[in-house]
Amino acid sequence: MTGPGTALRVELLAWRRSTVQRLATPLLVLLVPAAAVGLTTLARSGALVGAGAAKLAEYATGDLATTHVTAAGQVLAVATLMAGGFAVAATFGQPLADGRAGAYFGLATPRWTVAWARCLVVLGWAAACTVAAVALTVALSAAVSPDGLGAEAWAAAGRALAAGLLGAGLAMPFAAVATATRSPLATVGALIGIVALTQMVVLVGGGAWFPYAVPSLWTGTGGADAAAGIGTGGLLLTAAVAPAGIAVVVQQWRRLTDV
């Protein structure tokens, strides 16, 4: 067995055993639901006053279950990008920085197939974490919401799921950054840079068409009006970032030299 199947099998094992995965998985799966339910509870407790209360005003009213799941989607939209970005910084940048990437030359399973599989494994892992985080949020919400989950809450759950997946896909270009810079730290720097750039783009009103702003805005982080401004075009453009990023990485690894 050579090729994609082998590469996926090998990369899956490597990712299951990696320290980054062991740290990031519980953070994504447990922290997101805890944050969503906790922040909503805090907003509705009356304990918050001033700037804190203003920040969480959106969580203080409306259907409880819908608020829980919406909050989870807002956190996931950024968390999956950050987790996926750290994952590709580690899996692509570190082997290039420490010289292990050289061992992927001259193999029956080509190095670009390994790179492709590595992207898919990170993407699949982030998707699985998203599903688990949303499912746990729904379960927690169902346990504490007196009326259970209505249609609006289920719709918000679907949007949270999609936002998490889009956020994970947005991490794929950072595999290309890691390959180009050959440095995990430079990749993390670029990740922080794109988050700062996104803030600026949103401030000047370009968020609806800027892929790195779309998932957050779509889940309501910028308010109901900004969420309504996200159209199908913006969502499709955002979804296209992952395959484009993977295609670039595969090409980079095909042409890789001086390793």
Binding site: M1, A108, V114
Partner: peptide, 8 residues
Amino acid sequence: RTAALLHG
């Protein structure tokens, strides 16, 4: 084992 797989 991983190396064996990658080597075909």
